[in-house]
């Protein structure tokens, strides 16, 4: 099969640049074609990477995420000031200087200005990124751990265990994350670790649901029955046959979930439940600076933009992954 005005199948191989003259439908057709082509050794993940690379929005997401992670890792090196240092509490600073040190607009000394206590906003932002990254990763890992375990039990074994698990998931699902987190946080008390736990625990229900339904369709495949006929253990069947074929929607959801967790942390910090002051997080920065939105609105825009960009980046990557993992999945999840 050949398309007119277009080279042979080798032109469709991953790794080769293609002219971008083709409309979206043709491009889609090509991807299908490429998938069906009998080309050399192709691990399936290289197909995914190939499709992802050609999705500009996903690349934008990836770049932002890489920057975010680098900032979080190298925060102490990148920060220009001590994020906690406030001239207002420094006895060596004269009161005239104190008055001038607060709420400075961005300048060469303080790249993003100073806040109401004269602290360097840029340095606080850089250090605060660690909270967001940690919350995103840890909370999603907790959700995955619980969600995948129960989703697998429910989907693979079925029966009354399935009913019990899915009814409990319904209860968790009915709670909006932030409301649920507030309830959990009031029990556990404020603090960052408890934010991880609260957001993580609340996320399991959706993951369990998605994984369960994905498993239900995958386990109907005859290769699962073939594995049973060979005498494969349940663990092996789940791990080798069901997991690799049902994990795609989970990858997508978990990626987006990192963004969701970052946003949830911001909400909780806003309510004074997350990172405790004076240590910075984007959420508590936003809630502090929001007070000055009439007089100095630029202050709140700094953590606000950081939050929005990070959340958006994970959504873009998740969206790109969904299309890349399985073109047929488009529009679902």
């Amino acid at each position: 099969m050949r398309l007119p005005d277009h080279g042979g199948p080798e032109d469709l191989m991953p790794g080769k640049e293609q002219p971008d003259l083709l409309g979206p439908e043709i491009e889609e057709f090509e991807l299908e074609l490429e998938k069906e082509q009998i080309h050399g050794r192709t691990a399936l993940w290289s197909d995914v990477w190939y499709r992802l690379r050609h999705n500009k929005l996903a690349i934008v997401g990836i770049v932002i995420i890489i920057v975010l992670f680098l900032v979080a890792i190298f925060a102490p090196l990148l920060a220009t000031h001590d994020p906690l240092y406030s001239p207002l509490y420094d006895s060596t600073v004269s009161s005239a200087e104190k008055a001038g040190a607060v709420k400075q607009t961005p300048n060469s000394e303080h790249w993003l200005g100073t806040d109401q206590l004269g602290r360097d906003i840029y340095s606080r932002l850089v250090h605060g990124s660690r909270v967001s990254v940690e919350v995103g990763i840890v909370a999603v890992l907790i959700s995955l751990l619980i969600g995948l375990l129960f989703g697998a039990l429910a989907g693979y074994f079925g029966g009354w265990g399935d009913s019990v698990i899915m009814r409990s998931a319904d209860i968790f699902f009915a709670f909006p994350t932030v409301l649920g987190a507030i309830v959990i946080m009031t029990v556990l008390g404020p603090g960052l670790i408890n934010v991880f736990i609260a957001i993580g625990v609340l996320g399991w229900a959706t993951i369990a649901r998605i994984f369960r339904s994905s498993i239900l369709s995958v386990k109907e495949n005859e290769y699962v029955e073939a594995a049973r006929a060979m005498g494969a253990s349940h663990a092996r069947i789940i791990w080798k046959h069901i997991m690799p074929n049902s994990i795609q929607p989970i990858i997508v959801y978990a990626t987006m979930g990192v963004g969701g967790a970052i946003l949830a942390e911001a909400w909780l910090a806003f309510l004074g439940l997350g990172q405790q002051l004076p240590a910075p997080s984007w959420g508590n920065m936003l809630s502090e600076y929001l007070v000055y939105y009439t007089t100095d609105p630029w202050m709140m825009f700094i953590p606000g933009t950081a939050i929005v960009l990070s959340v958006l980046a994970f959504i873009l990557l998740g969206d790109g992954l969904r299309d890349a993992l399985d073109p047929r999945l488009k529009g679902s999840v």
Partner: peptide
Amino acid sequence: MQAVRRSMQIIFQDPYASLNPR
């Protein structure tokens, strides 16, 4: 039964669904 399974095998109808694509 596990030992017996060595001696009995099955081949399926659907050549697409019977092999794990991964």
